[in-house]
């Protein structure tokens, strides 16, 4: 066990876990931030996507020792009242079916729009193909990303 200091959603947390513990399980089991989901454990499905220093990363495959002291953002840190433009667009299009993958989808979409405010279909595909949705909400995810892009521009 070792002590790590994490900067999550602008709060500082101190956790005592083994160095190989993936960030995902620290978020969920230790810090009880359940918005970030477990889907595959091998960075294949995107359900656990968080931002590390602004970049979308799969928290299931990042050992805690690699993120000590770095800035982490989870779905809970996007906004206080679920009013981030991407969250609002998700509501406007009414994307979710079961909803389980959507935290990861939203985190990937936010990261995409932060670096590319007006992505093409091709660019959306490239940024989002790491996020699986078994309910098949892909068309609505794409539409919500475009809605968010439009709303953020105006």
């Amino acid at each position: 066990m070792a002590n790590y200091t994490l900067e999550i959603n602008n709060n500082s947390y101190s956790v005592d876990v083994t160095p190989d513990t993936p960030l995902l399980w620290v978020l969920r089991d230790v810090l009880k931030l359940y918005g970030t989901k477990y889907g595959c454990g091998i960075a294949q499905c995107g359900a656990c996507t968080v931002h590390i220093n602004g970049l979308p990363m799969r928290s299931c495959s990042i050992p805690i020792e690699k993120v000590n002291g770095q800035s982490i953002r989870t779905i809970e840190g996007l906004s206080d009242t679920a009013d981030h433009p991407v969250q609002l667009a998700w509501e406007e299009v009414d994307v979710p079916q079961c909803g389980y993958c959507q935290s990861g989808q939203i985190m990937s979409a936010v990261a995409l729009l932060e670096r590319n405010p007006n992505p093409s279909d091709e660019e959306i595909n490239r940024a989002m193909k790491g996020n699986i949705c078994r309910c098949g909400t892909y068309a609505r995810i794409r539409s919500a990303i475009k809605t968010a892009a439009k709303n953020m521009e105006s």
């Binding site: 969920r28 089991d29 009880k32 359940y34 918005g35 970030t36 989901k37 477990y38 989870t74 779905i75 809970e76 996007l78 906004s79 009242t81 679920a82 969250q87 998700w90 509501e91 009414d94 994307v95 979710p96 079916q97 909803g99 389980y100 959507q102 935290s103 939203i106």
Partner: peptide
């Protein structure tokens, strides 16, 4: 619109896997 959407987009939607309680072991 689906009633679960707001909870989902805020990351507050809770599924079986998110169950927690005092003294829980895994």
């Amino acid at each position: 619109k689906n009633r679960i959407t707001k909870e989902v987009v805020s990351g507050q939607s809770r599924y079986g896997l998110d169950m927690d309680m005092p003294d829980l072991v895994y």
